[in-house]
Amino acid sequence: MKRFWALWLVLIIFPVSQSQAKVYIDQLGREMTLGKPPRRIVSLSPGITEILFALGLEHSIAGVTEFSDYPAAAKHKPRVGSYVNLSLETIVSLNPDLIIASADGNRKDDIEKLAGWGLAVYVVNPQNLQQILNTIQDLGRITGQEQQAKTIVADMRRRKQAVTEAVAELSRRRVFVQIESNPLITVGQNTFWDNLISLAGGKNIVSGKATGYPRYNLEDVLLSKPDIILVTSMVPTGKEHQQLAFWMSWKAIPAVRDDRVYVINPDLVDRPGPRIIEGLERLARIIHPEAGFSQP
């Protein structure tokens, strides 16, 4: 008889709990169950933090990773370690009802551990601008900020279209990105940089020769004759002239000869968040100043 009672209990309770808890599939295909809209969220990458702030969730963020420096209010949130080196203890002690992780950066075993302890972990994995838009929508959906997400994504789509239409008919200028000069490190295929340069009407000279962030031969930069060189540097450091000085001795490169070496803040391009659209517009203005679309 006891079994029957248990069965009855299950039948009574199940529909109730069903209506509250929702199962979500994250971007790695993992299942995650979430009850009411989360109010204590821990973000495990600076990009995710930016998305959460943009969604108006400032007061629902319980913790962020090191280097979450945008917007300014993010600097005052509790820190849970850097994204490759998380403090799991700090995360658990913040008693989060949702943890948002990034497949590219956070360690897989950290994610598995947190999920294994019964915490709700949602993993995002955007690889290009389109997937960043999807990620903003996904995070809006699971945090109950769907309307906000729709507004942001619509604005970003409109600005992206403005850029791509403006450069559609223009010749694709050759671009080289310098992440590091000593040794020379650049960006290859399958990076946000490559994706954005191509959307902004340029062509990454490394595309098709290497992927990720390779150590690169200077000779090939001279041979490929880039029209534009982008030097990444955190702004404002005031040391841009040092970054540029490295290139000044290579007058054989068209970009150097024509004085088209630019310093750009990498956070606008390789941080998957809402500001990436600013990065796209900035790249487009650098690569095609003649296209003449207005400042946002």
Binding site: E66, F67, S82, V84, I179, E180, N182, P183, I185, Y213, R215, T232, M234, P266
Partner: peptide, 11 residues
Amino acid sequence: NGHDLQGILYW
């Protein structure tokens, strides 16, 4: 941070 880390490792 990540940006500096790569330069350091390569050095």
